[in-house]
Design a protein around this nucleic acid. Structure first.
Lengths: 190, 190
DNA sequence: CGTACTTTTGAATCGCATCAAATCTGGTGG
DNA sequence: CCACCAGATTTGATGCGATTCAAAAGTACG
């Protein structure tokens, strides 16, 4: 990140569950989550929570850089430390700093890929398949150190927490996974 | 698009169902679909087709610009005309042409938003809700002129075609939608 | 210690997937 | 022009799996 931009950024702290921005707000800042985790979420009409992005040492809601309004809520999953870049300055820095710019493009490309992987995952109609797909795409090592509650993970997978618990239990019983506390490991078979 | 880049592009024609690239291929070109439609798709282990992107007058599989391999198959939905840009030249043009670059960034941002909208849609557990969500996010006018078969649309919605037919029929009977051939219109209620 | 929340399991229900089969449609070749 | 064929469209019947509602046990935190 270019120093010119960093100087214009404001350090911000948010408590757990605090709102960084809400749907409909005019985007004034691009947030970089330095410490902790923030998420992008929406609620369906019936109230089920949907998680669209989890940011940890990364930007949150990048797409809002050019939007007239936020399409989602941004909330802190825990107490966090964030850098807030005024969008105007951010755009200027993108125009001025080639290094920063190519980082930004890489970041966007990665985010597109991640979102598409999530689409593919949600297309799987089977709870167990979604879990395995998550492990395969998000954990190169095959080991997932869960940094959130299982209930929150269920929302990210597009499942109810009950369905997630049962599917985890089933996969564990079948010997496909080893579940030990917040560590979930794929065993090498089928 | 900068003229310098356009000169380096190659015009390509593909028949219906022809493959532009396949999963695992090393990306050599970035494709711009000039005429017709191409799609990015994957198959789940059980064989259900999943549509991740539909490109029409736009880039296909942008994310591959920096990948070592394609993550999806690219196929022509119909006979198409495309521009193929060698990835090396494409990256150089991004570095050299500010105008082109900002267009590219805008495009990526739009693609992130679209993918996230699709994630949100797939999170809806109800077939009718997915249809309505699609109309709301993809058709500002509330009118959808379907440019593909319903069966293909069903794959994009993450439904079986039977479920789509039934949900369409139900919404139509309830007076929420007006369905007339390939035109689907949201009526202002509910 | 008490409270709020997560985790876990159970039972009932509902909607979608699946399998099946009957039109309908567009396009091809005779 | 018509017969034919492949695929899309549509409807029906059945089963499965996720949701939903419910409740108990575990856990973190003040």
């Amino acid at each position: 990140m270019p120093s010119c931009l960093r100087e214009l950024a404001q350090w911000r702290r948010f408590d757990k569950d605090a709102s960084l921005f809400a749907i409909g707000d005019v985007p004034r800042y691009v947030y970089f989550i330095v410490n902790g985790e923030a998420r992008l979420r929406r609620h369906s009409r019936e109230g089920t929570e949907m998680v669209l992005q989890r940011a940890r040492n990364s930007f949150l809601a990048e797409a809002s850089l050019e939007s007239a309004a936020y399409h989602c809520d941004g909330v802190a999953s825990e107490a966090i430390l964030a850098l807030a870049f005024p969008v105007g300055d951010f755009r200027l820095a993108l125009a001025d700093c080639p290094n920063f710019r190519s980082k930004w493009i890489s970041h966007l490309l990665r985010e597109v890929r991640r979102a598409r992987a999530q689409v593919e995952r949600q297309g799987l109609r089977n709870a167990g398949d979604r879990i395995l797909h998550y492990l395969e795409t998000e954990c190169p090592s095959g080991q997932l150190q869960l940094s959130q509650t299982r209930k929150a993970w269920a929302a990210e997978l597009g499942l109810t927490h009950e369905a997630l618990y049962r599917a985890l239990g089933k996969l564990s019983r079948q010997g496909v996974l080893r579940v030990e506390g917040s560590l979930i490991e794929k065993l090498n078979r089928g």
